[in-house]
Amino acid sequence: MGIRVLSPGLATSVQDLGRPGYYHLGIPISGGMDRFSLRAANLLVGNDEGAAVLEAVFLGPELEFTQDATVAVTGADLPPKLDGEPRETWAAFAVKAGQVLSFDFLKSGARAYIAISGGIDTPPALGSRSTYTLGALGGHEGRNLMAGDALPLGQASGGAAEGRSVPAKLRRAPGTPAELRVLTGLYWHRITEDSGRNFFEDTWKVAPEADRIGYRFRGGQPLSFVDRVPPFGAGSDPSNIVDSCYPYGSIQVPGGTEPIILHRDAVSGGGYFMLGTVIAADMDLIGQLQPNTPTKFVSVDMAAALSARHDRAGLMQEVRNALS
């Protein structure tokens, strides 16, 4: 008993906080791209913060409930409807067995988190219910949802309280342009000083190739590289390196043209130079960027990265306090 998928949306998947510990084997952490929203959705329905939820991108699914439950939708502004009646985002609401949850068109953001009391109870794989489609691992049969799928729910804690909501001041959405803070490093020395300056001065746009593996950007000037004799094993293109690991959030620029930021389903390594890494505090924001969103990269140092991290943790704590 739980929910039945009437229509799956565009790419709806089961996600929790991910499966750390296997990146050295090419299995990425996966999990919600916007973890702040995922945690908040769970808290609203009385779940553990890390319970499995549905992550819907751009287009919501249509779900029929086969049992009573409490539901909350956070993240993108993807307005929920219950049997056609509008419901609020960032708020808990009751659903009765037999009712259908559907969604209106996306107003802002990119990914909505649908938490259901008890959590999605698909079998964990390597300690997590997160879906990693490239490896056919976790979630519902290792893939995005399809019409006709039935998903089981776990035992609800009983702590759900309908009508509770996350105060608007505690919600966070990307600005215009979106600003992503970057700690330069890794192979930053491979590009010229001018290129480094341009990278931060230019306004980029999210490309259509933007998914859970990575977000691609267009519109800035191509980067010029510092001359070199290619190191053995690196390859002849100036953007090549001897294949190495890729940090989550790292920014690679194949051929010096289109930056790609790796996200939670990252390829764990490869042969392209990276000029730096988006700080952890801003990773959630990337998951809410739509294609064509103007984006600026902002250079910060480690102290600023840690301070942003601290602020982010503080905001999460305020959400916990508000919902306790």
Binding site: L183, T277, M302
Partner: peptide, 9 residues
């Protein structure tokens, strides 16, 4: 090199 605040490369 630091890879953001969570990695050392």
């Amino acid at each position: 090199s630091f890879g953001g605040d969570e990695h050392i490369f």
